[in-house]
Amino acid sequence: MGKTFDELMQYLGDMGIEVSTIRHAAVFTVAEAQNLRGQVSGAHTKNLFLKDKKDNYFLVTVDEDAEVDLKTIHGKIGASSRVSFGKPEKLLEYLGLTPGAVSVFGLINDTQHHVRVVLDEKLMQHDIVNAHPLTNEATTSIRREDLLAFLKMTGHEPLILKIDVATPN
């Protein structure tokens, strides 16, 4: 069983990381979440839980408007083969999340380090990053530096790569 929203907030607080969270109706897609714009400033994320043929798992987090080429991303992220979406059962087992609530905050539950985290460099140009705090009924805003500190504290050294194919070099 994964950590709860309250346990995540306690963990962040214990680390000295200040965040702000708004509660809202459950959203399951980026399109639904975009209806909340105006209430929350900063970059909003899109998250892909991927696996390769050798059962290596990746959490790829990009800006919500990013275009991701699933046919070529494996070469960028170090996968052993083309990738596909990870099964909901593995998402729950490794990150304690369900589809629609996928988020970098789920890495708090990956204590065995089954999942490699990849952040898009365009996303990381923003001072504030927004993500679901283990539930798709809220959005949490965190400073970029604090997000990186959180990931390192969970034992995840993120790869920061150009994933968005719509962004010119």
Rank of each mutant, 00 (worst) to 15 (best):
A31S: 07
K46C: 03
I128F: 14
K54D: 13
L48W: 12
N109K: 11
K87M: 01
L151I: 00
V83L: 04
L151G: 00
T61W: 08
T4F: 13
T72L: 00
K54A: 12
E121G: 07
L12D: 06
P99T: 07
T140W: 12
G78D: 08
E18K: 09
N136D: 09
G16W: 10
H24E: 02
N56G: 10
Q39N: 13
K46S: 03
K53C: 11
L147A: 08
L36W: 09
A66E: 05
R144K: 15
G106M: 08
L107I: 11
G96R: 07
L95K: 11
Q125K: 15
S81G: 10
V117F: 08
I73L: 01
F105N: 04
H156P: 08
T29M: 14
I160F: 15
V115N: 12
V129D: 02
E137A: 15
R82L: 00
N136M: 08
L134T: 08
E18L: 04
P99N: 03
F5I: 05
T140V: 13
K152P: 06
V30N: 02
F150T: 01
I17A: 01
N47I: 00
F58P: 10
S141V: 01
G75P: 04
D110M: 11
K90I: 11
L97R: 01
L97C: 00
M153C: 05
H113N: 14
P133S: 10
I108R: 02
T45H: 09
A131L: 14
